[in-house]
Design a protein around this nucleic acid. Sequence first.
DNA 1: TCAAAAGTGTTCTTATTACACCCATGG
DNA 2: CCATGGGTGTAATAAGAACACTTTTGA
Lengths: 236, 236
Amino acid sequence: MNSNALIPKELKNYFTLGLSIDCVVFGFDGEKLKVLLIERGDNPFEGYWALPGDLLAPDKDLNSSVNEVLNDLTGLNDLFFEQVETFGEVDRHPFGRVLTTSYYTLVKISDYELNPSSFACEAKWFNIEDVAELAFDHNKILNTCFNKLQSSIRIKPIGFELLPPKFTLTELQLLYEAILGLKLDTRNFRKKILSMEFLINTESLQENVSHRPAKLFEFDEVRYKKITENGFAFEI
Amino acid sequence: MNSNALIPKELKNYFTLGLSIDCVVFGFDGEKLKVLLIERGDNPFEGYWALPGDLLAPDKDLNSSVNEVLNDLTGLNDLFFEQVETFGEVDRHPFGRVLTTSYYTLVKISDYELNPSSFACEAKWFNIEDVAELAFDHNKILNTCFNKLQSSIRIKPIGFELLPPKFTLTELQLLYEAILGLKLDTRNFRKKILSMEFLINTESLQENVSHRPAKLFEFDEVRYKKITENGFAFEI
DNA sequence: TCAAAAGTGTTCTTATTACACCCATGG
DNA sequence: CCATGGGTGTAATAAGAACACTTTTGA
């Protein structure tokens, strides 16, 4: 049965839209913020780099469809994502009326395996500042999502989604610096993040480094939830 | 010519979605935060109160369509709005697959004239806390948009969109209190807002009040733009 | 013993909070 | 002259910014 069976027939021509999902997949290599792009294998914009995404199927929830796109692309499940904005200019897709809902998503880069979706020839990490002209309005989408990430990371503890489960405070600081595009004071950063009391000192140390090994920390999600319920507000 | 003429035919059944726009129209009566709802005149949810909105036509930009919805509803142009979130659960509309992009919008309540759209029997302002069960998933949308308003008003000078062009500092404070749901200290509020230096003292006074008349202020948008370009960040 | 990054406290400055009385007007 | 809301300053506290040296490890 057609899912639009009950739509009055004078409205039928309103039901000719396509909606796609576009994901700005961020990763962090320990030094720079990266974004995962795919090379388009089909028209339109064949050969251009683009954001991974897909058309929304009529029988799929919008958010579960995001999971699918990300799983196709990375082989991973339950990645963190946040909806950003829906772009709906009439002429944004040369083949027809396609709106797109954009998401930024965060991947631990070490978990990632190359698994480009069927639309793509190749998937590749780019430094955020090295992204050239993308297909469609994807540069605009990328910028919007990057801005959203920058404001979200100051008020939500999402940075941990980009790091391995155990990480050093220096890694965390470098991540913040890469995303926010500024230098932070080491002592002040540590004081602040440790005062929030949701990092667990695992008592284990970095290995195979040719200098004093750093302590490894874990994000304590349970404790974070508890203190936010009591009115605590994360902020960096 | 059909706008989807170039869509490959194996994808045609992806182009059967409807997308609506739903607007959470906020107003302020000097005391309480209000939201404008319409009574639905048609199925589904006939007789229920709902957010004003409309289906997106295949040949209209998403954002310009918002202007149209608001103009139909209020007779006003160039109202302030901000996109909030797109809701896309498969079963959110009983008649078919309709996603909806939500916006919050701000109206100077004194400018508003009753002009309900053709879908509505009646339009009415409700206190935000008195909103009962709405059509579709509109309660959820309303909550999401209200949350967005609460966070936006702390970091953008949008409160002025809800007040007449000339307003008193008390009116402005009451507005913040109504939206944020808390009491603010008068002296601290005035100190802060005046220190930002984008309010113009018009040198005119309130009239027809049976107490000391308050000074009337205007928002200086030009000056606000100038100082934000120089790195100033609004915050309350 | 050197190189490299880890780790750590204090002072200064700025922002935020708390708080109470006099003023101007209309009735 | 009374009622009503308008308007104002200071002190205490808390948060943020600036800043430099010692420690631990591997090579």
